[in-house]
Amino acid sequence: MKYVITPEGVLEGITVVGILALVTIILEMAPVLIGFKKSEYKYKIPLLICVNIVTNGILNLILNAYFIQYGFTYFVLELAIVLVEGVIYYLAIYDISFNRALSVSLIANLFSAVVGVFLLLLLGV
């Protein structure tokens, strides 16, 4: 089957990816703020937003480009995101341990993935 890319389809795809990124940022904000509450680093929210725009955008582009369903590949991609975000948080937030950064990333991403999949199932997407 041949797929035709139209400007409307591209705009719709960008809109969906943007909405998914926004929902992810909102869902991950509480775990990140709670997990890093003892840190003196004052740019936690801008860091969270930037990191999630990039990682969530890449995740959704990969899922859509390769027509990947939610399954093992999705699980592997989410684990990669946990690791990437954990490393970024560790490098950016100077007064936390690597274990703390990775734990917060895991909890935040697990929370947003579970809620996100539930919402997708609820909406019938």
Score class of each variant (00 low, 15 high):
Gly18Val: 11
Val87Arg: 00
Leu110Trp: 03
Val32Met: 14
Lys2Arg: 11
Leu20Ala: 13
Ile88Ser: 03
Lys38Asn: 11
Phe98Glu: 06
Ile96Arg: 00
Met1Glu: 14
Ala101Tyr: 02
Ile25Ser: 05
Glu12Val: 09
Ser105Leu: 05
Leu121Ser: 13
Asn109Lys: 02
Ile96Thr: 10
Ala92Leu: 06
Leu20Met: 12
Ser112Gln: 15
Ala65Leu: 12
Gln69Met: 13
Thr24Trp: 03
Leu91Tyr: 08
Val114Phe: 09
Val125Ala: 13
Gly86Arg: 00
Val10Ser: 10
Thr55Phe: 04
Leu110Tyr: 05
Tyr94Ala: 12
Gly9Tyr: 06
Leu122Arg: 10
Val104Met: 04
Pro7Arg: 14
Lys37His: 13
Val10Trp: 08
Phe111Gln: 08
Ala65Cys: 05
Ile107Gln: 02
Ser39Gln: 06
Phe67Lys: 15
Val82Lys: 00
Ile93Arg: 01
Ala113Leu: 08
Thr73Glu: 11
Val125Tyr: 09
Thr73Pro: 02
Ile26Asp: 08
Leu83Ala: 15
Cys50Ala: 14
Phe111Gly: 11
Phe67Gln: 14
Val87Gly: 01
Ile25Glu: 06
Val117Gln: 05
Leu11Lys: 13
Val51Glu: 02
Ile5Arg: 04
Val115Ser: 04
Val16Thr: 15
Ile34Val: 13
Leu11Asn: 10
Tyr89Ala: 07
Glu85Trp: 06
Tyr43Met: 14
Leu122Met: 14
Ser97Leu: 09
Thr55Asp: 04
Asn56Gly: 15
Ile93Leu: 00
Glu28Thr: 12
Arg100Ile: 05
Thr6Met: 09
Val17Thr: 13
Leu77Phe: 05
Ile62Trp: 03
Phe75Val: 10
